[in-house]
Simulated scan of single mutants.
Amino acid sequence: MGKKRVTSFDVAKRAGVSRSVVSAVLNDTPGIGVGAETREAVLEAIRELNYHVDAGARSMKTGKSMTLAAFGDTRHPLFTRLLEGMQRECELSGYHILLCSPRHKGNANGRAELLELYHQRKIDGIVTLDHTSYGDLEWAAKIEAAGIPYVSVEGYAEVPGVYSVLADYSGSVETALNYLLREGSAQQPGPAYAEIYHGDSADNWAERNRRDAYTGWCKAHGLQPVIIQLDEQQGDWAGCLQQLAADNGRPYAPLLVNWSSAIPDLYRAAHKLGLRIGEEVRIMAADNTIQGHRLSLPSLSCVEIPYVSMGEEAVCCLLKQMNGVMEKEQADKIWLPAILRAGESA
């Protein structure tokens, strides 16, 4: 038999007060004056009885569950970094996080459950980590119709009216290229750009922004852009490195790679060709998914997409929506700059 749960009635009886007084102490209810001696008696009864507030009852009274849903694949390293940022901001605001993962059951990849959780008052808002080409208009319409506070991280970049927290991919490429061509670096050809792709990934807005930023930067510096496209699974990295070789004894062109997930294969190819990374060939990545600045040797120079900060911003945006302080004319896209991580590879 389970132990009987202590209620506010038990606290009131122990303290010799009414339940409304107990409620006033717990919730700092305005307009109900509680003397210092009475307050202390209630708090002492709470400690003695080990009383805990019924979250369900409080939710019915306040209309808030004090819980936010975080929707994404827990196996993905970027989702765990997003959660780190969400947790930081939630701790400051007294909120908890409910993890929800895609289940691929034909219900919009598990998102229908999020709607049910909101209607059941189990969550107050939703943050989803989406791929950069995500822009499901049907899902956005359901969210709007239900009046659910919602933020997509990385999704809906080209869809107005949906709150999104996004990385400035154009700025990240410019930061990387400026670092490769920084003052004091060896005289060398202009940097080449290796674009890793799978399926239709080369056509999403993030990759277009990166590509356009690279060609625009080259044009501004009077350099000829060199774009090398490679399949993520079967990329010819040895051939890519050989394309960087120049005649007349000039050094190899530096290389910027869009995804750091390809760096281990690139390092292996350089080793087989006898090339010293950071000396004979300089390499940099336009993201840091694999934490290459710490885990690769030589340590990888990269520009890191700020997923921790994106998690913080997503929670802040949700809270503003819930508290009615998000102005109608306020931009629905929040852009965050990438972080330069200088390593030994460039």
Results as ranks from 00 to 15, higher is better:
L180H: 00
I263H: 03
F9R: 14
S164T: 11
G106K: 14
S65Y: 04
N209H: 07
R14L: 12
K142C: 08
E48V: 09
E116W: 08
M326T: 11
A12F: 00
D168Y: 04
A346G: 12
Q229E: 15
M284C: 04
G324C: 07
V257T: 09
R81M: 12
A70M: 12
P102D: 02
Y252M: 15
G222R: 10
G292P: 02
A12V: 05
L300E: 08
E113H: 09
G278T: 06
I123M: 11
A24V: 05
H76W: 12
V308F: 03
G33L: 11
Q242V: 13
I263S: 03
A245V: 12
K4Q: 13
E138R: 11
L297H: 06
D287P: 06
Q120M: 05
G63F: 08
I148Q: 02
K320G: 10
E40C: 07
K61H: 09
A36W: 11
E329V: 10
L68W: 00
G2P: 03
E207T: 05
T289G: 03
T74G: 05
E44N: 11
A245M: 14
A346N: 10
E313G: 11
F71S: 05
C317M: 13
L273W: 13
M1L: 08
E144H: 12
D265P: 07
G56H: 12
D231E: 15
H96M: 14
G161K: 03
R14K: 10
L43E: 11
E40M: 08
A15R: 01
T29I: 14
A213F: 01
A338Y: 06
G85F: 03
Y156Q: 08
N178E: 07
S23P: 06
V281R: 02
I148K: 01
C100S: 07
M310V: 08
L43K: 09
I143C: 02
G274T: 01
H221E: 00
Q224A: 15
E183T: 15
F9E: 13
P191Y: 00
V162F: 00
K272T: 15
V53T: 14
V159Y: 12
A45Q: 00
G311E: 04
P77R: 08
G110H: 13
H119F: 10
A202V: 15
M66K: 13
N107I: 07
K272F: 09
K4P: 15
V127F: 02
E312F: 07
D136W: 05
S20P: 06
P191L: 00
G274N: 09
M310T: 02
N323I: 01
W217K: 02
K219S: 11
E279K: 14
P160Y: 07
R75H: 14
L82N: 01
A70P: 14
V53A: 12
P191Q: 01
L99R: 05
E280K: 05
D332C: 04
I126A: 02
P225Q: 03
S152E: 02
D203I: 09
G278E: 11
F79H: 13
H96Q: 11
G161P: 12
Q291T: 10
N27A: 13
Y95D: 04
V6A: 03
H271A: 15
D28I: 08
M284K: 00
W217A: 01
I263A: 04
A245S: 06
D54C: 09
K4L: 14
E174R: 10
R210E: 00
R111W: 10
L223K: 10
F79W: 10
I339W: 06
V25L: 04
R341E: 12
Y197F: 15
D212E: 15
T67C: 15
C90W: 05
